[in-house]
Write a protein that binds this DNA or RNA. Sequence first.
DNA 1: GGCCAGGACACCA
DNA 2: TGGTGTCATGGC
Length: 215
Amino acid sequence: MTDLYPLFYELQKHLGEDAGDWPAQSKEEIVLGAILVQNTRWENVELTIQNLRQAYPDGYKTLHLEEVEHIQELIRPSGFQKNKSRAIQSVMAFLSEHGFDYEDIRERYGENLRDQLLQLFGVGQETADVLLLYVFDVPVFVADSYARRLFEAVGLGTYANYQALRKAVGELPFSLRQAQQFHYYIDEFGKVAFAKGALFSDSALADFKLKTREA
DNA sequence: GGCCAGGACACCA
DNA sequence: TGGTGTCATGGC
């Protein structure tokens, strides 16, 4: 993959160098958000997070022990409550087994952590990478649908699926902070640039492709 | 009222 | 291994 810094800085120019944090009050809340946001608007997830904070003001570390029906009711605004409640319990049970010690989990599993996460119900490739990036502090690339559409739009190639782009990008040259921002930038930009009726040619990155060609 | 959102899984060939 | 149907709510 070509140098990704030009794209990174172009996005940063439009979205700000202070942006890019996952909006959560704890690592556990990032985990829940990552599951709840699957194929769902973030606004719907926020409704659910409010429910969860109210129901569990002391945190979510015993969530895997709760009645699944109770969780389903709380997360209803995010949709897919049957699958997502199972996903929440499978991931939270795994984390609980390791005492919610994220650093220890990362060191224990090392290179196998991604495969370990993929074995949990409700954790596919994108969610696994999001968890690595924001929960386990590993600077990985999230090759989600916005990323694939953006890369294609700016002339960085076309990719059939998640794995194709992930493989093409390989290891990021970024710091952890930059990797987190990169994902944030891509998704925030994508929401606007690829919204229904929006034309990429009208977007802030419309001439990025030409600029990089000239350089 | 239809469409879709920061996917993943079950099922099938 | 890859392709398709299904899961569900809320906002536009």
